[in-house]
């Protein structure tokens, strides 16, 4: 029986869906049992949900009197201590910004091999699929014997219920040194509550949007369906959208169920960031746009007419 420790990520007190996806990835094999490493949170609050996806042990990692989330080096040290104490066979987390950062710190600290942003993980066989060259190739890698770590790209695994009973083990962490890095504050953008890399539906705008104000057309539609809004590099370069919304090679890699590209020509670099979307829909007024050869559905038309019409229907 292999024990896989999944570092659970929470945002504003709620467990992220991508963490449940990671649990499912580990539970795929009957030979793997899942231990959840829960940092800062009250384990009793999250027990039901973690059990629902198949967790059998919850290690509650807390530093009395402080939030480890504010101290990246201390958080990594705390989880590293838990790894040494509980000796899992594998360590994993959702491949979100925070997950990748934390795993990178831990792997460097413990000097263990780590592959981030895996699109497939077979914990029993110790094999992962890792996309390289911006998605042009996939490398199948096999870890050497010993502890290994990996992060799983959000939305590549469908979270599946698998009821279990979990025991809660408290792991109080004490250190006199909170580390050299401090998170002074977190600023939230109320207009962008859905994280692009974890969204099921994405509405994306290209340079044809014409202005930052025009992105409101996409925002309005997106709000109706709980979608996230993305942008092409050209739109970001033109100042119509911030960098955090950029999908593509030098932006974010997304893998939603539905990706709707509005006024996006479909360069290789943009495609690299969204090619693993299950369904790609393109709306473009240019019949020669490259995106029409890379999508599942194409609408040759004016996005400024189509998107509002779509919004009306989705009410």
């Amino acid at each position: 029986m292999l024990t896989i420790a999944i570092i659970i990520e929470t945002d504003q007190g709620e467990i992220k869906p991508s963490s449940c996806e990671a649990i499912t990835a580990a539970r795929t094999h009957d030979s793997c049992s899942v231990t959840a490493f829960l940092v800062d949170e009250d384990p009793a609050k999250h027990r039901r949900l973690l059990e629902a996806y198949g967790t059998t042990t919850i290690v509650s990692i807390r530093k009395p009197g402080s939030r480890l989330d504010e101290r990246p080096e201390d958080a990594a040290a705390a989880v590293a201590e838990a790894v040494k104490r509980f000796k899992p066979d594998g360590l994993a987390a959702a491949g979100t910004r925070r997950g990748n950062d934390l795993l990178s710190r831990i792997a460097a600290m413990l000097d263990i091999p780590l592959v981030l942003d895996c699109t497939h993980v077979d914990f029993a066989a110790r094999r992962v699929h890792k996309s390289r060259f911006s998605g042009k190739t996939t490398a199948v890698l096999e870890f050497d014997p010993g502890l290994f770590a990996c992060s799983i790209r959000p939305k590549t695994v469908q979270a599946r219920l698998s009821r279990a009973n979990a025991e809660i083990v408290a792991f109080p962490y004490r250190s006199s040194d909170p580390g050299r890095i401090k998170v002074k504050g977190v600023q939230r953008n109320p207009d962008a509550p859905v994280e692009l890399t974890e969204a099921s539906i994405i509405l994306s705008g290209g340079k044809a949007m014409g202005s930052a104000e025009n992105f409101m057309i996409l925002n309005t539609c997106a709000r109706k369906i709980g979608a996230a809004v993305g942008a092409s590099r050209a739109a970001v370069d033109a100042g119509f959208a911030p960098h955090s919304m950029q999908v593509g090679q030098t932006g974010k890699t997304v893998s939603p169920s539905v990706y709707i590209a509005c006024g996006i020509s479909g360069s290789i670099q943009h495609f690299a960031g969204m090619k693993t979307s299950r369904t790609i829909i393109a709306v473009n007024i240019d019949p020669e746009a490259p995106i029409f050869s890379k999508c599942d559905y194409g609408v040759l038309g004016d996005l400024f007419e189509i998107v509002p019409a779509l919004t009306e229907l989705l009410t």
Binding site: V183, K184, V186, N189, P190, P193, V194, E198, S244
Partner: peptide, 11 residues
């Protein structure tokens, strides 16, 4: 930081 949040960090 993801989910529309920006972290301000000091080191």
């Amino acid at each position: 930081r993801g989910s529309g949040a920006m972290e301000e960090i000091e080191l």
